[in-house]
């Protein structure tokens, strides 16, 4: 089942097309990353998905429910953690949680239980009587996520949860997201940190209001480069021996005795050993052979600079 089906979303502010024909299909139970630099249209896209903004054109269904027509039913199964801390700073941690438990229509006993659970899970018990405005950035984020989960949503939407957050907490958050996924929650997360996006099952790269590419992190990288990259260090020049093999030379560096060559192959894990053997069979001594790890960042830049 599709958790989110957003079709041809467009949002025009004045004359500016902030989001331009974005289509996203998010399968149930995955972590889906919306990736892109600031201003790419990520927040606008998720706001349209949540019905916080009315799309200029296009439509959104969440678990099959049309957001425009029946937003309230969507809200009952959707949790949202906005980019900026949006709870009441002049209420305490506990007051905020109780308020939202009531607003989501949790019964008294259920609310008690849920608040207790979440306070334990997100280490908020020590701060329960503190005003939300007096919390540190990390605790605020934990509270925001706890509140977003109060009503046990099936879909969690988080906008830049790790912006301005220190590395341990970033790691903590991604751990939480994976836990939630195990429990069957679908997660739509935006980020501009490319390294984090490796944690996602699928990502959509956004650039200037459009989806530049979509797929798993691995697929995205292969799409950007046209395959995987492996690097070989050999004695002598291996290039004549590569004739007829499914590998093309990207880079070559040689000092006469040893060479370093970067090759593009369709799939590194499949190609690395056979290719090395084949070269050795053709009389090339391979000193080292390894896959070159590719960054999503590099992939992103390649994919978006093509025009």
């Amino acid at each position: 089942m599709l958790a989110i089906e957003a079709v041809n979303l467009t949002k025009v502010f004045g004359g500016f097309r902030a989001v331009d024909g974005v289509t996203l299909r998010v399968e149930e139970g995955v972590i889906f990353g919306l990736l892109g630099p600031n201003g790419a249209g990520k927040t606008t896209t998720i706001r349209m998905i949540l019905g916080l903004l009315k799309p200029t054109s296009g439509y959104v269904r969440v678990y099959g429910i049309d957001v425009e027509r029946d937003r309230r039913s969507v809200l009952r199964i959707t949790g949202y953690m906005p980019q900026h801390f949006s709870l009441y700073e002049d209420l305490t941690v506990e007051e905020n949680m109780r308020l939202y438990a009531s607003l989501y229509g949790l019964g008294r006993g259920d609310a008690e239980e849920r608040i207790r659970e979440l306070m334990d899970e997100f280490m908020l018990r020590d701060f329960r009587g503190r005003l939300a405005g007096k919390l540190s950035g990390g605790t605020k984020q934990r509270l925001a996520l706890a509140v977003a989960l109060l009503h046990r949503p099936r879909l969690l939407v988080v906008d830049e949860p790790t912006a301005g957050v220190d590395p341990p907490l970033r790691r903590y958050f991604w751990g939480k997201f994976r836990e939630l996924k195990e429990r069957g929650v679908t997660i739509l997360v935006t980020t501009h940190y490319m390294d984090e996006a490796e944690n996602c099952d699928r990502i959509a790269l956004m650039s200037r209001g459009r989806v530049a590419a979509e797929g798993s992190p691995l697929e995205i990288k292969r799409l950007a480069y046209g395959g995987d990259i492996i690097e070989l260090v050999t004695a002598g020049d291996p290039r004549p021996a590569l004739d007829g093999l499914a590998a093309s030379v990207l880079e070559f560096e040689g000092d006469g005795s040893y060479s370093r060559v970067r090759l593009l192959v369709p799939d590194a894990s499949e190609a690395l050993v056979p290719l090395t053997r084949e070269l050795e069979g053709r009389g090339v001594r391979v000193v080292r052979a390894y896959q070159v790890p590719l960054s999503l960042e590099e992939a992103f830049i390649r994919l978006t600079s093509r025009g």
């Binding site: 949540l50 309230r72 809200l75 949202y80 906005p82 949006s86 989501y104 229509g105």
Partner: peptide
């Protein structure tokens, strides 16, 4: 302005 509205209207009010 304080953005609390964005969270508030994510509840079925």
């Amino acid at each position: 302005e304080r953005k609390t509205f964005e969270q508030l209207i994510m509840t079925p009010l």
